[in-house]
């Protein structure tokens, strides 16, 4: 089952399938260790459609809702 990262609930672990988005966003996420194939845990989800906090390779990253929507993931 593939869905986008913004709809994942807290404390769920998912695998990145692909990133929909231009060159800039692909590169930016890649720099923070988010590539197709990487494992991500969603740790927090802010209220009012705010950002989500994820953990990737032992590091925490905040992603705006719009950015998270561009990351296609697969629930384990």
């Amino acid at each position: 089952m593939t869905i986008t990262l913004d709809s994942i609930s807290e404390n769920q672990k998912v695998k990145v399938v692909s990133i929909f988005g231009g060159w800039g966003i692909r590169q930016r996420l890649g720099c923070l260790g988010i590539h197709p194939g990487d494992m991500i845990t969603v740790k927090k989800s802010a209220i009012m459609r705010g950002p989500i906090l994820i953990s990737v390779h032992g590091n925490q990253v905040a992603l705006g809702r719009g950015v998270a929507r561009k990351v296609v993931v697969e629930a384990e």
């Binding site: 966003i25 906090l53 905040a62 992603l63 705006g64």
Partner: peptide, 10 residues
Amino acid sequence: TPGMILEIPS
């Protein structure tokens, strides 16, 4: 605005 991508350090 482009969405936020921000590392949250320890």
